[in-house]
């Protein structure tokens, strides 16, 4: 394989992305100055609690909603500069899998129509026969039996519906997929089936994932690198194993210790329970946004804006005290 610039460069680079929403009460900082990159064939996990901006980030990366500021480089090119026509072609390479397989599929279309739709819209094939072949191939790839081809989504269970969403996303041969909580609506045994499928597909098709979830055990299982979000900011970012072994930011520590572990050992451990609730993302105060809930809080935490600092190779933390 020839070593080109292309291979070293991350597939997706997110640079200083900001997304603010106007509300009657002020500016809602959904995503605030986040920079991330995802290498080819790897998975970046995005974790955080509800309202931290993880879904907004996923949508901004695919340019489904325009960011307030920043750049999104795909293969080194800023997709925010693309015109409509170019963007349309670009969208074939980047797809999304949605959280709720019950509401993200059109209830009035059959499985065939749902999977074929992107192929038809983008005029990929010139004959119906080829489209049929492709649809059947996609169904086989994601493990949907051929007999479901003329069924409607309501006839199928959550796991199978999520497979349809996946087949649809994959039908365009994308390079990059944003998975927005793809397994959180599913039962554990089905969840494991879908996670295995996603990992197998990554191996065989060389896909790059941005995996958004609130479930830390899932994110550890599937990701190479993890970014922890808190009220629109990335507070810690590290390779998956490093993050779980040596969490540095107080928020990450609390997040990790909050996971109930299915073993007897966990009963004896007195867990750290964080006081208070997530603060309002509308017009946030300068400084550390976790400070009001943090037990190490010192007045200087609120004095100035913080930046992500590299404390160890590839391990970035945004904290005045531990960074």
């Amino acid at each position: 394989m020839k070593k080109t610039d292309d291979n070293e460069r991350p597939l997706v680079e997110i640079i200083d992305i900001k997304k603010y929403f106007k509300t009657p009460f002020g500016l809602l900082h959904a995503v605030d100055n986040i920079s991330l990159s995802i290498s080819r064939g790897k998975t970046l996990g995005i974790v955080g609690e509800s309202g931290c901006g993880k879904s907004t980030l996923g949508r901004v990366v695919l340019r489904l909603i325009p960011p307030t500021d920043g750049k999104i480089l795909f293969n080194g090119e800023n997709i925010l500069d693309y015109d409509k026509k170019k963007m349309r072609l670009m969208r074939q390479k980047m797809q999304m899998i949605f959280q709720d397989p019950y509401s993200s599929l059109n209830p009035r279309k059959t499985v065939y129509e749902i999977i074929a739709e992107p192929l038809v819209v983008n005029c990929i094939f010139d004959s119906k026969r080829k489209i049929n072949e492709r649809v059947l191939f996609m169904m086989e790839t994601v493990g949907l039996a051929e007999r479901f081809i003329n069924t409607y989504p309501h006839e199928l269970d959550g796991g199978r519906r999520q497979r349809i969403g996946l087949a649809r996303a994959l039908s365009m041969n994308p390079q990059f997929i944003v998975c927005d909580e793809p397994v959180s609506a599913l039962d554990v045994s089905i969840q494991a089936q879908i996670l295995n499928l996603l990992m197998d597909l990554q191996d065989s098709l060389g896909l790059t994932y941005m995996f958004i979830t609130h479930d830390l055990s899932v994110v550890k299982h599937i990701s190479d690198e993890i970014a922890v979000l808190y009220i629109g900011q990335c507070v810690e970012r590290a390779p998956s194993r490093e993050l779980f072994q040596n969490p540095i930011h107080p928020y990450t520590k609390i997040l990790l210790s909050s996971i109930p572990v299915p073993s007897l050992k966990s009963r004896s451990i007195q867990r750290e329970v964080v006081k208070g609730e997530v603060t309002d993302p509308i017009n946030p105060k300068p400084g550390c946004r976790f400070a009001p809930r943090c037990k190490y809080y010192k007045p200087e935490c609120l004095s100035e804006e913080l930046e992500l600092k590299e404390v160890k190779p590839n391990h970035y933390v945004m904290c005045r005290l531990f960074g």
């Binding site: 089905i190 494991a192 295995n196 055990s217 194993r241 572990v261």
Partner: peptide, 22 residues
């Protein structure tokens, strides 16, 4: 099967072992 379906935080498993079927 239920235990096999949960990603374990302490032990690294390359693959989950879910229960087949529905």
């Amino acid at each position: 099967g239920l235990f096999g379906s949960i990603p374990n935080l302490e032990i690294e498993t390359p693959r989950l072992s879910p229960i087949d079927g529905l």
